[in-house]
């Protein structure tokens, strides 16, 4: 479903991605791990073209999104993303945060968009907060709204970039549970996280990145239990 081929990206002299190749099957949950600065976010952001890679290809559902002439915002409709800092729109109520893109991008009617939004809010267990303002919600609640907002575009893949890192410890569970449910529903997901328990439980495949390359990948049972490379072992010894 997603193929990443020899991806390269530099910021000035800083070569952040140095030939990254990976693939994600439909319905698969891929967990991306690695030390801070290893290029995980950059890789994720390349998939929805928030960053434009310098070289290499990305294919989503048989379409090369890195090809010339591809319209970026059309690619991004199909790739939902959730950020560490939630990034809810503070000037819009919860429900309007969710309906904005379906209305403006998909051309959905206000009624249809609101119906969809309410369904998604029920799914993340926040139906009673539809009329609230983002700042009235806790971090965990805001992040669940952000997930609902991304889902409202009915994307083919969901990208999660350390979505629990900014949360108080007590709130990570509610967000991870929503993600687990989503995984169980068959959503294709790429998840950057330091939550190894989540990786073990929900991940189909774990990719370990180090200094802009993929050092090792495999199912959790293999990579977490029996890592092959020194860098992987060292990283895991710190986070496990």
């Amino acid at each position: 479903m997603i193929q990443i081929v020899n991806l390269e990206k530099a910021f000035g002299d800083n070569h952040v991605l140095r030939g990254v190749s990976a693939s994600v099957d439909k319905g698969e949950v891929v967990v991306l791990i690695g030390a801070s600065g290893s290029g995980k976010s950059t890789l994720l952001r390349c998939v929805n073209l928030l960053e434009v890679p310098d070289a290499g290809e990305i294919w989503i559902d048989g379409v090369e999104v890195t090809a010339k002439g591809v319209v970026k915002h059309e690619v991004r409709r199909e790739t939902g993303m959730v950020f560490q800092q939630f990034n809810l729109f503070p000037h819009k109520r919860v429900i309007d945060n969710i309906t904005l893109a379906p209305k403006k991008v998909r051309g959905m009617s206000a009624e249809a968009a609101e119906e969809l939004a309410m369904e998604l809010l029920r799914k993340v267990d926040l139906a009673d907060k539809a009329r609230s303002w983002p700042h009235q919600l806790s971090g965990g609640q805001q992040q669940r709204v952000a997930i609902a907002r991304a889902l409202a575009m009915q994307p083919k893949v969901m990208l999660f970039d350390e979505v629990t890192s900014a949360l108080d410890p007590g709130m990570t569970g509610e967000v991870l549970n929503v993600m687990k449910e989503l995984a169980a529903d068959g959503m294709t997901m790429i998840v950057v996280t330091h939550e190894m328990a989540f990786a073990r439980e929900a991940g189909d495949k774990i990719i370990f990145m180090h200094d802009g390359v993929i050092v090792e990948e495999g199912p959790p049972s293999q990579l977490l239990v029996n890592p092959q490379h020194e860098a992987t072992k060292e990283f895991l010894s710190k986070v496990l």
Binding site: L50, R77, F83, N87, F89, A150, M153
Partner: peptide, 18 residues
């Protein structure tokens, strides 16, 4: 305005103008 707002908007498939 936090650049995260723009990124969130773009990631939803809105055009830069939107």
């Amino acid at each position: 305005i936090d650049p995260g707002q723009t990124q969130a908007g773009l990631s939803l498939g809105l055009t830069p103008f939107q």
